[in-house]
Design a protein around this nucleic acid. Structure first.
Lengths: 161, 161
DNA sequence: CTTGCTGCAAAAGTTTTGCACACGT
DNA sequence: ACGTGTGCAAAACTTTTGCAGCAAG
């Protein structure tokens, strides 16, 4: 089995000292009586290499290119586990396809979507995060994250009133 | 053709005096050289009767029950126009199915999702809306809306760390 | 009348599942 | 050994599209 290097801290998250992602995942799997297989290791590796958003088919294609052949079914099955492990998050941008992003050890990333051009701008804003946490607690729940898309148009191109 | 009653203000929005939704939609269609048909009228009617979230198949089923038979294809085609007309909004909750909600004349509704139970709590918060608008303008875009989901767990049931 | 619309069924695209065999623990 | 995982291909589902006849402007 391909033992993973300990490249847990990816490029967008260098400040915090966190347990290696690979260990996190193994612990999660063990705790559920699931197994850490070569395929899951490869997929985790591929996910760690992604910056920003990615899609299941994209991952499949890139792994195929990199000669890391894993079946489509396994990708989808593993993505589910990664989401449950809190390592990646599902970000819904359009309804046709799921997008994911690495979240382990990262602050929540939100998006401004330019509906005129489909351009997507990432941002992080503590005021938003704090407000979301407060709202969540006000509803009696402990916040575990949020997902925010803000839609805007280029000034001058108002949408239908 | 079934001429619509002027029931434009639905139950969750009684304060503002807005042009009837039906007129809004007709104007939108005319402006694009599209036609206002009996089917579109029936679908708009069904949408106006919905409170909160709904799905395409749900609408289809309810209309079927109400003897307002419209084909699946027409539902989907009309939903697209309603979104473009700014009458309904797509709300992405899970990646399997699109959810929609009436937005015309309504303040943006956001959601707190209890991931332990899949319960969805609606809320409105001006601070969030204002902050979103400000962030959007800071990116050089004119805000047209946003979509926010906050995820929380029942205290005591922390998700995997 | 011209152009767009509808319904149907088939297509398309993503995600899931059944099964037989292979592999962690 | 036992219980999961994997790959494959087929299935399941939502959403889209082509086409022939129909209807709105």
């Amino acid at each position: 089995m391909a033992e993973l290097e300990d490249n847990s801290a990816n490029s967008t998250n260098e400040e915090a000292i966190l347990p290696p992602l690979c260990s996190i995942f193994r612990r999660f799997l063990k705790q559920r009586g699931l197994k850490f297989t070569a395929e899951r290791a490869k997929i985790l590796d591929a996910v760690m290499g992604k910056e920003g958003l990615f899609q299941a088919e994209e991952l499949l294609w890139e792994m195929y290119q990199a000669e890391e052949r894993v079946s489509k079914a396994t990708i989808y099955r593993t993505i589910k586990h990664l989401v449950e492990a809190g390592i990646i998050q599902e970000v819904l941008i359009d309804s046709k396809q799921s997008h994911y992003q690495l979240i382990y050890g990262q602050k929540p990333i939100d998006y401004v979507v330019n509906v005129s051009s489909d351009e997507i701008i990432e941002f992080q804003d503590d005021a938003i995060s704090d407000l979301c946490d407060a709202i969540c607690r006000a509803k009696g729940l402990e916040p575990v994250g949020h997902r925010l898309l803000i839609f805007g148009v280029k000034p001058g191109e108002q949408p239908p009133e």
